[in-house]
Design a protein around this nucleic acid. Structure first.
Lengths: 345, 345
DNA sequence: ATCGGCGATGTGTACGTTCACATTTCGCGA
DNA sequence: TCGCGAAATGTGAACGTACACATCGCCGAT
């Protein structure tokens, strides 16, 4: 049963007030009310005041559906996000919401259950149905990104978390540089055998970090260990850490994110090894908990919030017809804590 | 510049096809098309097939704004969430999205920047403007919850993460029971002086967990330590842990969530103390990383996903006029790991 | 005094859909 | 063959808003 409606009684005509009700009570035409609503110029201050008074008084709210129907505008920005509970996307999303609110836009978020074309199309249609004026895609997976290429949208689009290559409008933290920084940090400490536990195959960031890692390794002319493909979870880090110890042909591990690093720390500790004494570990992301790991984790900080803010700045700029927008990549930062040390052998 | 539009050339009238275009091409009236769209009965199969063919062919999509304007229906469920990056709400949200999709509903999420009445009203209006048929409120803060009470909505509402008391439709994991379980676990291990590091004042869960803690303490007739109010972060846990050690008048700590527990572990470790040898620590939530903490954390698991699924089941039930719905609270589960041990003195 | 022009406001219509009701078509028994 | 009811389809509104254009005063310049 719905709250607030009566069941048996005659419906007491509870229709919400519309623009004509306001007009009638204010003694003006509906068009004048419309002008007040869209704060047009050339309206007498006294009239405006009177109309606003009535609006306040009867609690009139413009009907967005009607407005969207006629204008195809909505002051709404859509966010399409692949469904993940990961720290990065979530943080960016929050920053996006704040930035959009500040710019006077509303945000509608829809998340993808899967990353196949159908799911993307469905999510997109839902957003388009709300007459969104711009779209932010937080799509860390390659597939989503590809699927998007095929859609010719008529609104500005900004893509997050890509490598920034080839996409029309994309914004990202420079993952490759970050991975290079992490790897070079280990190399600088004298490590010669470094293992990389990467993220899943189809994640753009996983790919980029792997590339940065391999770059740094081959530049330093070190032995290349084949990266291990993980799933971002601490559980995976733990398992792979345990297996890795069977060989013990490395002195440092660069994990694709902080969670997997945590699992690795756990596995090494369980085996009686000391981090960083025996093995160095570097993570990626700098989640708020990373500094409280044991030992506090050396990692690469990404400014996800800045990423979110910039995406909205870019998008709003495009919507409002600005040019000369800032597409620069954001540089990550290496945070050195206690999980890395000079190689012992 | 918008993608997909040409700048200089005359606009080539790219109006999206509407129901009348379909009707004309199919040689029927627009109403017949409408009937096909809403799969009404009494429509000749051959006609239906023909219409569907045309729809497919010209890529017609019903205009939701127009539909919403006239029906005030949208097969959309709104989610109003207070803006947090916390594990629980995020996990529930994902479950909600999946469950809704399965039930044939779409989800629109709007998050609150602040929890004042104005922000809530604004968020709600945005959702109502999309003609949502039901509303899920993920509002862990007392203020949000209170503000909602004042709004007389005409659609079904389900509130998450409350204590389940007094709200018309609310669903939650029984926080009080969970806190009691955690505290009794410590009491059972012989701890007589237990400190509770709680969440912020206005969080409903924080309050409930505190209540469960105090319940258990007073039932066991132990000395009551005044709970410390925190902010859920690991950083806070670390700082309070450091300060707590100045007195050292306790043998166990029950943290309001796993992050704060992590900070406590860090602080105690830094001070040269052993967990659980010297101090036992219990968390709350069982985030996926908790088992990889050092030591693996004893905590209370909440099934956030189940919570999300149940909320949609409840809401869809109400929307579709079902009765006899399941409002039972979900019971949390104590997960005993290595951060708790028998009290040493 | 007349008229152009501008500020302020009103009128008609379109947006794309669904609802209520009207109309046509069809099959079948009398 | 007719008529009748049900099935199938069509017609005219209405939803609430914004845009294009029309109208009405009024002021100052000619």
């Amino acid at each position: 049963m719905k709250l607030g409606t009566t069941d048996k009684m005659e419906a007491p005509k509870v229709r919400a007030p519309n623009i004509r009700d306001v007009a009638r009570l204010a003694g003006v035409s509906y068009q004048t009310v419309s002008r007040v609503l869209n704060n047009a110029e050339s309206i007498k201050p006294s009239t405006k005041r009177r109309v606003l008074e009535i609006i306040e008084q009867i609690g009139y709210r413009p009907n967005q559906a009607a407005r969207a129907l006629v204008t195809s505008k909505s002051r709404t920005i859509g966010v399409l996000t692949s469904q993940t509970a990961h720290y990065g996307p979530t943080t960016s999303l929050h920053a996006i919401e704040d930035a959009a609110r500040e710019a006077g836009y509303l945000i509608t978020t829809t998340s993808l259950s899967t990353s196949d074309q159908g799911s993307i199309t469905e999510g997109l249609e839902h957003l388009m149905a709300q007459a969104i004026e711009g779209l932010v895609v937080i799509a860390p997976q390659v597939r989503v990104f590809d699927a998007f290429r095929q859609l010719a949208l008529t609104i500005p689009v900004v893509t997050l978390d890509s490598t920034g290559q080839g996409a029309p409008r994309s914004l990202s933290v420079d993952q490759i540089a970050g991975a290079r920084m992490a790897t070079n940090h280990l190399i600088g400490l004298g490590h010669k055998d470094i293992v990389h536990v990467a993220g899943p195959r189809d994640w753009i960031e996983a790919e980029a970090r792997m590339r940065g890692f391999l770059d740094a390794i081959s530049t330093a002319d070190l032995r290349t260990h084949r990266p291990i493909l993980g799933d971002w979870t601490a559980d995976f880090g733990y398992h792979v850490g345990t297996e890795l110890l069977d060989f013990r042909d490395f002195t440092a591990v660069f994990a694709g994110n902080d969670q997997m690093a945590l699992g690795l720390l756990h596995a090494f500790r369980n085996a009686g090894l000391d981090v960083p004494g025996d093995i160095s570990v570097v993570g990626f992301d700098d989640v708020p908990e990373a500094r409280h790991f044991f030992p506090p984790l050396t990692t690469v900080r990404q400014d996800f919030a800045e990423l979110g803010r910039r995406s909205i700045a870019l998008l709003v700029g495009e919507i409002e017809g600005e040019t000369d927008l800032d597409h620069a990549q954001i540089l990550p930062e290496l945070i050195v804590r206690d999980s890395t040390a000079r190689a012992c052998r």
